[in-house]
């Protein structure tokens, strides 16, 4: 059983939902990331989505765009992100780490080379925003050969006929995008999400994480009612932006938000 599967299995037996924070690696500077990952685990994170900075993050709103710009100002490359994961693994061998980013940095490294290095570093899953299943064949083969899950997005606009295809290619979990929009968009409609998840679950037994629009304990708990995982990004990255000069404050504030979400979800 890999770390992602073990995580969801264990949570299910406790009747709890996964709290999945996202931060961009190297933001505000590379030295902060590994410590922040550990702090997030202590605050109740079950899985960490680590953003790989990209110069042109088309599916992201201004908050994560700026996070990418801060990380790239310190030249945080894909190889550096892999090194951070390896460093994280020195003292944490349980918490799954999923890399989330865009295809071009992986294209430049080459799918096989990336998959091998990522597996060696201790990466459990990869979510490539601009790589839909239709273009994924070679990518999925390389990841599978290295036991890395390929996680796909589903959107409110995904038709039922494609849900099945997306679920067939994917493994680990499915990431349901709760709103039409970029990251950091407006608040989500939990009833609407709930209806859509019913449809998704007709096509897959994989756990379903829901992201976009989750900002506090209340929205995290509400989404936790209907999903297997609660993914939270922009609200954390906002804290990183606000306290870019003070890494301790970043840890404290990000942890405080996660602790609040954790307790609201577990209540």
């Amino acid at each position: 059983m890999n770390r992602i599967e073990a995580c969801f299995t264990s949570l299910k037996s406790q009747n709890r939902k996964a709290l999945i924070p996202y931060v961009t690696a190297g933001d505000p500077q590379p030295g902060v990331t590994v410590g922040l990952m550990h702090a997030m685990v202590e605050a109740g994170a079950d899985i960490i989505e680590l953003g790989v900075p990209f110069s042109d993050p088309m599916a992201d709103g201004p908050v994560i765009q700026l996070a990418c710009e801060r990380a790239l100002a310190h030249n945080t490359r894909l190889v550096d992100v892999l090194a951070m994961v390896a460093q994280f693994r020195e003292t944490n061998n349980e918490t799954p780490v999923v890399l989330m980013g865009y295809l071009n940095p992986v294209e430049m490294m080459g799918y096989e080379a990336f998959a091998e290095q990522a597996a060696r570093a201790g990466v459990d899953g990869v979510l490539t925003v601009d790589l839909p299943p239709e273009e994924s064949e070679a990518f999925v083969a390389a990841m599978k050969a290295n036991a890395i899950d390929v996680i796909y997005l589903l959107a409110p606009t995904t038709e039922e006929s494609r849900i099945e295809a997306v679920c067939r290619y994917g493994s680990g979990y499915v990431y349901y995008v709760s709103v039409k929009g970029v990251t950091g968009s407006a608040a989500l409609d939990v009833d609407e999400v709930s209806r859509k998840l019913e449809v998704v679950r007709r096509h897959t037994d994989m756990p379903v994480g829901v992201g976009f629009g989750i900002r506090d304990g209340a929205s995290a708990a509400a989404v936790g009612e209907v999903a297997d995982g609660v993914i939270v990004g922009s609200v954390l990255v906002n804290q990183i932006a606000e306290h870019a000069e003070n890494p301790d404050a970043i840890k404290t504030n990000v942890s405080a938000i996660l602790t609040q979400m954790r307790s609201a979800m577990d209540a």
């Binding site: 601009d130 239709e134 273009e135 997005l153 959107a155 995904t158 997306v166």
Partner: peptide, 19 residues
């Protein structure tokens, strides 16, 4: 599928696939 040899294709976020 929109491929010109190895080029082209449709590399977008799931949110745009429907459109």
């Amino acid at each position: 599928r929109g491929h010109f040899g190895p080029y082209g294709g449709r590399f977008v976020s799931e949110t745009l696939m429907g459109a």
